[in-house]
Design a protein around this nucleic acid. Structure first.
Ligand SMILES: [Mn+2]
Ligand SMILES: [Mn+2]
Ligand SMILES: [Zn+2]
Ligand SMILES: [Zn+2]
Lengths: 147, 147
DNA sequence: TATATTTTGAAAATAAATCTCAAATTTTAT
DNA sequence: ATAAAATTTGAGATTTATTTTCAAAATATA
């Protein structure tokens, strides 16, 4: 577990180092994302902020996300219905996403051999891996039962 | 190597079995796709058809693709810049896509342990896998050299 | 405090994918 | 072969996530 205040401070330094200005909107968005437990899209995040009384615009949410990706706090994990979903990178091991094509539920699986496999293939191609997605589309056990 | 005429005939049967009508547009689109050697999006496919003098509309291309996916001839392999890319499933082993974030080049890697890993995890979750994508984003060897 | 620079919100623009609907085509029935 | 029924087509309109525009507001610097 990493402290929110510490992350917020690191982000401030990241922003400053890039010659950008540290704004309350950027901080609000980061703090809200740090509370997320699973996958989110821009609209969900924006709605959560509004419900708390925040006045941030959707445009600012869209503009802040690439900064948080670059800073390494979040990652785009998959796209569904032409929408991008993100998740916190912190405290998380790289994992597989099982996406049920019936109910759209997304399940996470940690496989300890996956990272090795990727490192091996990347080295073989002289490729520097940054991030990866393994998405498996199929039918979940719930949906198999109720046919 | 599978014969085009044989595939075209199978597709005709597939369409008929679904109670749909077999049209010259659907056949044209399938034949063009069968010539593809790598990944394509709807626009590229549509442009190739038009250059050959075909009169098919983009709407028909969009409408035929899900049929070809359902029939198992093609697969959506990744999304880039809000666009879906497809490839022929025929004669191809499941593979990894290395996507260079600098030059956008996509490289294919066949890993013989990947399919096993997926089967193992799916069985563990009582999940029926249909398709999967493993995309690795990073920097390719070419782009590493010219910094 | 004044100045320069960046960021913001609101609304317009963009673009891939989907939808609409009358005309054309395919299939089935006669 | 011909007619009727059903589906598909092309063209353009619509949808919707994301990006862009730009004047006003906020931030950083002097
Ligand atoms: Mn996840
Ligand atoms: Mn491929
Ligand atoms: Zn399900
Ligand atoms: Zn490259």
């Amino acid at each position: 577990m990493v402290l929110t205040t510490e992350i917020v401070n690191d982000f401030k330094n990241f922003i400053k180092k890039k010659g950008l200005k540290y704004t309350s909107e950027r901080e609000e968005i980061l703090k809200e994302i740090l509370k997320s437990k699973d996958h989110f899209d821009v609209d969900e995040l924006y709605m959560k902020l509004r419900k708390k009384g925040s006045k941030v615009s959707k445009a600012s949410v869209y503009r802040t996300i690439p900064l948080l990706v670059e800073a390494g706090y979040i990652q785009e994990v998959y796209k569904q219905d032409a929408r991008s979903y993100y998740e916190l990178t912190l405290d998380k091991l790289p994992h597989i996403h099982f996406i049920c094509v019936k109910c759209k539920n997304v399940d996470e699986i940690i496989d300890k051999y996956l990272a090795e496999l990727i490192q091996k293939e990347a080295k073989n191609k002289d490729y520097t891996p940054l991030t990866y997605h393994l998405e498996i589309f199929g039918i979940c056990s719930n949906c198999k039962r109720r046919v």
